[in-house]
Structures are given as structure tokens and as C-alpha cells.
Design a protein around this nucleic acid. Structure first.
Lengths: 204, 204
DNA sequence: TGCACAATTAACCAAATGGTTAAATAAAGT
DNA sequence: ACTTTATTTAACCATTTGGTTAATTGTGCA
């Protein structure tokens, strides 16, 4: 891949900010240019069109969004370590990039075809994780259930609090986002506790 | 409240469709008018501005979105029945109105102040549920944990699969939304099983 | 029937918006 | 130094978009 010029990187960062705040439809090319301190024409010089620029941003966001989980199970991993890693890396990720979950969710919803293309290109494969969970169940280490649904539950518990952060913060924490932030941070541990009953201990 | 004319209702339904597909920024007044089979000027005749029309839609959506939970615990309820009701009513709701979760989440994220105003007007109060859960814990019926976090987990498990439906359907179910739909439907029961370990049975 | 008022429409408007262009400036190569 | 190429800018353009207006049609009622 060609090295990215400084200007290009500055544009991408500004675009990421604006697109994740306003969405594709709500974002304004002028605002991106302003935030990058450059002339609006530069956006087209480097990225041709709003759509193309957005594609770059979305692709990068999705790349961050996904692989955390996948790489957590290269080897046949102990389930407790697996859980610890998945939850921890997701929570760290979203703590640093709070905009990620809702950005992905919103834009996938608005135009699912964009995701479709990306999945095919990137060869991402969540089924590996499903198989892993399934194996743990067959070995009697995990309580038996639909492994896809278990993965869905783990992801729900990890992502939703971040995706719904402005809502939850206001409804459940009286608008005190710091308070909520603490809960989110400690979730690395409390979620493991919450999921603990799924793990079958062999009586030693 | 004044009776709503037919035209008004038709507009609201069309607006709801378009706004929840495209979001506030992405929606076009012309498209709403077209879908309602009326002249665009009628939209302004009845609702003054796009913003005002959107407010109506959002308010109605939020009203559907919230009270399901709240009304589930008018009396001091058995925890199993509580869970059953909450999960069941949420799943039924989102099964019929799949657009609701992501619509609320997206738009609250885009403009949290809109929610702020609504909360104050509507006097919604999730803390009642938190208190209820807390009491159950003190009575030794529920495993002890942060009650706000338990509520958060229940909500996450209920809502996220719907909010992320286009994403999950493609990533986990190979794009077969019917397959996913079945899982969602059966979740009324599987989620109860999943949460079962939280409930402490008194040995009879 | 005719009058007042509500509902509806076609035509129009100003502002915003994504995108283009031609000229200017800076860098790089010779 | 000179030429070529890449980068940057200001001005401009066509289209879209939310919103308005003035005229038309429909409705209830005195």
C-alpha cells in the first residue's frame, strides 16, 4: 500500500470524528475540511467523493471492531482465559473508542450492503469462535446451549452498554457519566462473575 | 388532546417509516410526502418543520420503548415472573417493531439533549426497577451484585440482538435472517435459562 | 345558497451541499 | 535555473432540500 501523506491522515482523522458524530447522511464535507484545517477541495483531491471517504472510515472502524475476538482463540484456549481476554479487550477498546459501537451499528443498519462487501473482502469468520464454544460444551467444560446464542450473549453484554451509553447514562445513572464509566471499567471483572455459572468446574 | 385527522395519521406513519430507515439527517421531506401520497406542503401545514415532525416520531418511539419494563412491576413481583414478563414483552415488542432499538439508540447518540427533555417530561423512572432488584437480593432470592448492573445486563441481552440484527444476521447466521429470527423468538425461554443461575432456590 | 374556514396543491425560493475548475504555489527531478 | 509534477486554494456550479405562498378545492353550517 502507498504511504499516506500527512494531509491524508489528518483528513481521515477529521472525517472519522465527523462521520461518527453525525453519521454518513448528517456529516458535512465542509465541517470535515474545517476540522482538518484544509480546503474542502482537498477532500475530493484525496478521496474523490464523500461516499468514498466514508468507505475508508467505515472499513477502518470495522477492522477495529471485529478482530479483537477472533484473535483471542488462535490456540485451543482455556475457557476462562478466553472469556477474560475477550471481555477485557472489548472493554478496553470501547473505553478508548466509545464512538465505535454505535457508529458501526447505525451505519450497518442504514446500509447493510456496505457490510456485506466488507465481510467478503476481509474473510472474517466468527464461526471459528462458535466452533470453539461448541467444543468446550461437548467436553463438559461449558454448560450446554446453542453456541451461537452464547456468543451472541457475550457480545451483547460487552457491546450494548457502550452502544447505549448516552441513553443508559441518563436513564440509569442520572446523567452522571463518570459514575457509569466506573461501572463499565469494573465490568471486566463483574462480567466474568456474571458468566461464571456457565463454566462447569471439575471437582478436584 | 385534539383528535388526529386521517391525513395527520398517514403522515405520522410515513414519517415513522422514513425516519427510522434513514434517521433524522438522512430522511427527506419529499420522501415522507411521497410515501404518504400527499403534497409536501401538507407536512408543514400539520407539523411546521422537519424537526417538529421528527420530535413527534421520536417521542412516540421512546414511549413504546420504555414503559414495557416499568409496568412489569407494579406489585412486588416474584422474580421469575418479573423476568418472564420483561423478556417476553421486550421480545414481542421488537419482533413487531424491529426498527425501534436502533432508531432510539442512533438518535439519542446523535442528539442526547432530545432525550434529556423527554425524560423530564415523561417522569419515567428506572430506579424503581433497580430498587426492586435490590430488595430481591437482600431477601436472598437473587444472587447479590450491583442491581444497576444486573438491570443493564438484562436490557443488554434483550435489546442488543435486535439493535445489531443486520450485523449479527450476516456475521453469525450467514445472512439467513429467518434462521436468526427463530433464535430471537426462542430467546424468551433460552434467556430465562441463561439467567436462571442468578435465582437462588430455597430448598423446600 | 352562500359564507367562513379548513384542507390541499402547484409553483416558487433561498440556503446548503457535494462536487468541479482553473489558477497558484510548493517540491522534486534534470 | 528550468521544467515537470504534486499539492493547495478561491471561486464557481448544479442540484437538492426544507420551507413558503398564493391560489384552489372541499366542508360544515347559518
Amino acid at each position: 500500500m502507498v504511504l499516506k501523506s500527512d494531509t491524508e491522515k489528518i483528513i481521515l482523522e477529521a472525517a472519522r470524528e465527523v462521520f461518527s458524530e453525525k453519521g454518513l447522511a448528517g456529516a458535512r464535507m465542509q465541517e470535515i475540511a474545517d476540522r482538518a484545517n484544509i480546503n474542502k477541495a482537498m477532500l475530493h483531491y484525496y478521496f474523490r467523493s464523500k461516499e468514498k471517504l466514508f468507505d475508508e472510515i467505515f472499513k477502518a472502524a470495522f477492522a477495529e471492531f471485529w478482530p479483537e475476538v477472533q484473535y483471542s482463540l488462535l490456540a485451543s484456549l482455556d475457557i476462562e482465559i478466553f472469556l477474560e481476554r475477550v471481555l477485557s479487550s472489548y472493554i478496553d477498546l470501547f473505553m478508548n473508542k466509545p464512538y465505535l459501537p454505535i457508529f458501526i451499528l447505525s451505519e450497518v443498519n442504514r446500509d447493510p450492503d456496505r457490510l456485506e462487501k466488507l465481510i467478503k473482502e476481509s474473510g472474517v469468520n466468527p464461526i471459528a469462535i462458535v466452533n470453539y464454544l461448541n467444543k468446550q460444551m461437548e467436553q463438559g467444560i461449558l454448560k450446554k446451549m446453542n453456541p451461537k446464542e452464547l456468543l451472541l450473549n457475550i457480545i451483547s453484554l460487552s457491546i450494548f452498554p457502550f452502544a447505549g451509553r448516552p441513553l443508559i447514562s441518563r436513564m440509569l445513572f442520572d446523567g452522571d457519566d463518570d459514575d457509569f464509566k466506573n461501572v463499565l471499567q469494573s465490568r471486566k471483572q463483574t462480567l466474568i462473575d456474571f458468566l461464571q455459572p456457565l463454566i462447569i468446574k471439575n471437582k478436584a
